[in-house]
């Protein structure tokens, strides 16, 4: 689904911090949305999440840097990181160029059922993105 200049694949779930999750059984692949990467600007470095680390929904678990700005990414799900995209350490711009494929952040073994996530075609999600675009002037 396209909202403005931003792409939001229909098969993913989204939070209100500009992250996405693809749920497959008890595993979630997570990353930053197209809108999120645009807000961040050119990402010169993304920290590789530590495999084995427990993460909690809404809590920062990894950092990235763009324009000398260190930002924190909040976890979209609760669980344990079982795989991390190590290529991001060398090419942070993968998140900018391909946020839903090559720019994925981590795979997480779910520790709790994801709650409060939205689908791209959910009217509530469209409203949220519209308000975010207004807030950020995007």
């Amino acid at each position: 689904m396209e909202i403005g200049d931003y792409s939001f694949p229909d098969d993913l779930l989204y939070d209100r911090e500009h992250n996405w999750a693809q749920i497959d059984g008890n595993t979630a692949t997570i990353g930053m949305t197209d809108f999120g990467q645009d807000l961040a600007g050119e990402i010169i470095y993304a920290e590789t999440p530590l495999v084995g680390r427990e993460i909690t929904f809404g809590e920062p678990f990894v950092s990235l840097e763009s324009g000398k700005w260190v930002g924190r990414i909040k976890a979209i799900v609760t669980g344990k990181i079982i795989e991390a995209n190590e290529e991001l350490e060398w090419e942070g711009t993968l998140i900018n160029d391909d946020p839903y494929e090559e720019g994925w952040l981590a795979k997480v073994e779910l520790g709790a059922e994801p709650e409060g996530l939205l689908k791209a075609n959910d009217p509530e999600f469209a409203e949220f993105i519209a308000s975010e675009r207004e807030k950020y002037g995007k």
């Binding site: 807000l39 600007g41 763009s66 324009g67 950020y136 002037g137 995007k138």
Partner: peptide, 8 residues
């Protein structure tokens, strides 16, 4: 401003 470019 929430936007980083605008913030700077």
């Amino acid at each position: 401003p929430r936007d980083r470019v605008e913030f700077y």
